[in-house]
Amino acid sequence: MLEGKVKWFNSEKGFGFIEVEGQDDVFVHFSAIQGEGFKTLEEGQAVSFEIVEGNRGPQAANVTKEA
Protein backbone atom coordinates (compact mmCIF):
# COMPACT_ATOMS: atom_id res chain seq x y z
CA MET A 1 0.00 0.00 0.00
CA LEU A 2 1.11 3.51 -0.81
CA GLU A 3 0.25 6.65 1.11
CA GLY A 4 -0.55 10.02 -0.38
CA LYS A 5 -2.70 13.13 -0.13
CA VAL A 6 -5.64 14.12 -2.26
CA LYS A 7 -4.51 16.84 -4.68
CA TRP A 8 -8.08 17.52 -5.83
CA PHE A 9 -11.33 15.61 -6.23
CA ASN A 10 -14.44 16.65 -8.18
CA SER A 11 -17.38 14.95 -6.46
CA GLU A 12 -19.76 15.93 -9.29
CA LYS A 13 -17.64 14.14 -11.89
CA GLY A 14 -16.47 11.44 -9.47
CA PHE A 15 -12.72 11.61 -9.97
CA GLY A 16 -9.54 13.41 -9.00
CA PHE A 17 -5.84 12.92 -8.30
CA ILE A 18 -3.70 11.79 -5.38
CA GLU A 19 -0.22 13.26 -4.78
CA VAL A 20 2.53 10.80 -3.88
CA GLU A 21 5.90 12.17 -2.80
CA GLY A 22 8.57 11.44 -5.39
CA GLN A 23 6.10 10.04 -7.96
CA ASP A 24 3.64 11.26 -10.55
CA ASP A 25 0.12 12.10 -9.38
CA VAL A 26 -2.25 9.12 -9.48
CA PHE A 27 -5.76 9.22 -10.98
CA VAL A 28 -8.55 8.17 -8.60
CA HIS A 29 -12.16 7.30 -9.51
CA PHE A 30 -14.93 7.31 -6.89
CA SER A 31 -15.53 3.57 -7.45
CA ALA A 32 -12.05 2.86 -5.97
CA ILE A 33 -12.94 4.49 -2.62
CA GLN A 34 -13.62 1.93 0.11
CA GLY A 35 -16.45 2.41 2.60
CA GLU A 36 -20.17 2.98 2.78
CA GLY A 37 -22.27 5.95 1.74
CA PHE A 38 -21.34 8.81 -0.58
CA LYS A 39 -17.86 8.20 -1.94
CA THR A 40 -15.86 11.41 -2.07
CA LEU A 41 -12.47 12.73 -0.98
CA GLU A 42 -11.42 16.12 0.39
CA GLU A 43 -8.44 18.13 -0.86
CA GLY A 44 -5.42 17.47 1.38
CA GLN A 45 -6.95 14.33 2.90
CA ALA A 46 -4.46 11.52 3.68
CA VAL A 47 -5.24 8.23 1.96
CA SER A 48 -3.66 4.83 1.44
CA PHE A 49 -4.12 2.92 -1.81
CA GLU A 50 -2.72 0.50 -4.36
CA ILE A 51 -1.82 1.32 -7.96
CA VAL A 52 -3.31 -0.74 -10.80
CA GLU A 53 -2.99 -0.34 -14.55
CA GLY A 54 -6.17 1.18 -15.95
CA ASN A 55 -7.29 1.89 -19.52
CA ARG A 56 -5.46 5.23 -19.51
CA GLY A 57 -2.49 4.35 -17.34
CA PRO A 58 -1.90 3.94 -13.60
CA GLN A 59 -4.81 4.57 -11.26
CA ALA A 60 -5.59 4.17 -7.57
CA ALA A 61 -7.45 1.12 -6.25
CA ASN A 62 -8.65 0.12 -2.77
CA VAL A 63 -8.47 3.72 -1.56
CA THR A 64 -8.97 4.10 2.19
CA LYS A 65 -9.15 7.35 4.14
CA GLU A 66 -6.58 7.72 6.90
CA ALA A 67 -7.74 8.83 10.35
Rank of each mutant, 00 (worst) to 15 (best):
G22Y: 05
Q34Y: 06
F17T: 03
R56I: 09
E3Y: 11
I18P: 00
I18Q: 00
N62P: 02
I18F: 03
F27L: 04
I33Q: 02
A32H: 08
F17K: 05
G14C: 03
K65Y: 15
F38Y: 10
F38A: 15
A67L: 09
G44V: 02
L2T: 11
Q59G: 05
S11N: 14
I51R: 10
F30A: 05
F15R: 02
T40A: 12
N62M: 10
E66C: 05
F27P: 03
N55V: 08
D25M: 06
W8F: 13
E12I: 14
V52A: 12
E42D: 11
G22M: 09
A46G: 11
G35S: 13
G14N: 03
T40K: 08
N10P: 02
G14F: 02
G37H: 06
V6C: 05
L41N: 01
M1S: 11
K13P: 02
E19T: 14
G16L: 01
D25T: 14
F49D: 00
G14D: 01
K5V: 08
I18A: 02
R56M: 06
G57R: 08
D25P: 06
E53T: 09
M1T: 12
F30S: 07
P58S: 12
A60W: 00
G57A: 05
I18W: 01
A60T: 02
F38P: 07
F49Y: 05
V26N: 01
Q34I: 10
E53L: 08
E12F: 12
L41F: 04
T40G: 14
E21W: 07
E50D: 11
V28E: 00
E3T: 11
D25I: 04
T40S: 13
G37Q: 09
F17R: 03
G4W: 02
G14Y: 02
F38V: 07
V63F: 01
F15T: 04
M1N: 10
K65S: 10
V28H: 00
G16E: 00
S48F: 12
G37C: 04
K7H: 08
E19K: 10
G4K: 01
V20G: 04
E21N: 12
V26Q: 02
Q45W: 15
V26L: 15
H29K: 02
V52N: 10
D24L: 07
F17M: 15
M1C: 04
